[in-house]
Design a protein around this nucleic acid. Structure first.
Lengths: 225, 225
DNA sequence: CGGCGCTTTGAGGGAATTCAAACTTAGTGG
DNA sequence: CCACTAAGTTTGAATTCCCTCAAAGCGCCG
């Protein structure tokens, strides 16, 4: 927990207070943790497992983001004391820490370094969402997939192999397309050395894929923290 | 200037210090104020006119947002001391206040209420970007236009008439489509009582348009501040 | 008044979605 | 351990949506 940049900023006492008020809970896969339109009662921290942030409107649904350990979500809604704009469900067996919203806001008021860390966290989240927006508006679906693969490959150690963190249907929604379309995108990337078998993807020639993907640091690279 | 929620939080002295260090500048239309990939040197405040935030990648370009008085941009990049992810250009004759990034960060450290206001501003910006993302991923282009029109109508006083704040090509990019497609979207909305002539759009029957648009509070409504 | 640029319209093509069905995989219960 | 089921994935065909290219119309400003 303390590994989180956000909580590293807290003094021991304040950290203990937050933890005392928090609930550590386990959930099986497929549980809807929160639904959009509810009031923000808890800041959620993913300690173990995977959580999908998704959104619906008039029967349609899409994935906004995947949260994996150690990551938090709903911070903006908690701070503004507003309703959630996104829903969340577990994709795998997960362990979450629920911190009462009120306690988070109190800790922020009491500890300047914590508020500073919150500013940085929010700024990062904002910028990361802008990157997503740019990717959606400036790229085709195959390009989005190609760049997503390149980044996943690097994050998973650069072995040329990727293990998908979720089902393909979810990845499709995350990248803004249908499952069928993702399947076709994978098929079209086979011309650039991409082979997918189940949840394992192999990239035989990074530079060839990179030529097609044309990665853009202003979309694909993460801010240095 | 002091009307801005962000600056209302500043003490008189700190506010004066910020203003002393800032530059008030006028720009003709069509000037590129900042380009993505540059380091964040100034927080920008639009005092008069209109600024378009846009982004490019490999020859493609899109509009992210329009900023009008009194609004600010580049806050996240300034706080993180990072490069900009977006470019900015004036659409009309504009007057901007440029506040050195370093001064903003210093003011934040010195004044707790200012930092608190920054937290709220960032949280709002984040949530508003999430709304954009949902709109893009969950709606067709005609639906995005219809909902944009409904919101613009309300913001402009509910007279049933809208004056477009920018050229249609820019609105098209803002909504994630081509100018041709926007034109066709307008044509298709004429079945729901929408007439556009130049930069004036008339809605003859709000409820009919609303039936088609199916506005969703979690996408179209702004947070109460 | 003329020219430039934006907007509209049309035609054609490409990309993505929908619908449907076959196939694969994982998980369950016999 | 195997068969069976259910769900996820892939493939195919048809459709819709959107984009590109091209040309014509229109408005605005010099």
């Amino acid at each position: 927990m303390r590994d989180l940049t956000l909580f590293r900023s807290l003094g021991d006492e304040a950290f203990a207070q937050l933890m005392d008020a928090a609930y550590l809970q386990r959930f099986p896969p497929g549980v809807v943790l929160i639904s959009e339109n509810e009031r923000a009662d808890f800041l959620h921290v993913v300690v173990e497992g995977t959580v999908e942030m998704f959104a619906t409107s008039h029967g349609r649904e899409t994935t906004i983001e995947l949260i994996r350990p150690v990551g938090l979500f709903l911070l903006a809604a908690v701070l503004k004391d507003q309703i959630y704009l996104q829903s969340a469900r577990t994709l795998a067996k997960s362990q979450l820490l629920l911190i009462p919203a009120e306690k988070v806001r109190m800790a922020m008021e009491r500890e300047l370094p914590f508020m500073r860390a919150i500013v940085m966290e929010l700024a990062s989240d904002y910028r990361s969402t802008i990157r997503d927006l740019k990717s959606l508006k400036l790229r085709t679906s195959a390009e989005r997939l190609a760049n997503w693969l390149l980044r996943a490959e690097a994050e998973q150690g650069g072995s040329g192999q990727i293990e998908l963190p979720c089902e393909k249907r979810t990845l499709a929604a995350r990248l803004g397309m249908t499952p069928e379309n993702l399947s076709r995108a994978f098929a079209s990337l086979s011309a650039y050395g991409v082979q997918s078998k189940g949840s394992i993807v192999a990239i035989s020639d990074l530079s060839r894929l990179s030529d097609f993907a044309a990665p853009d640091p202003l979309i694909d690279e993460r801010d240095p923290s």
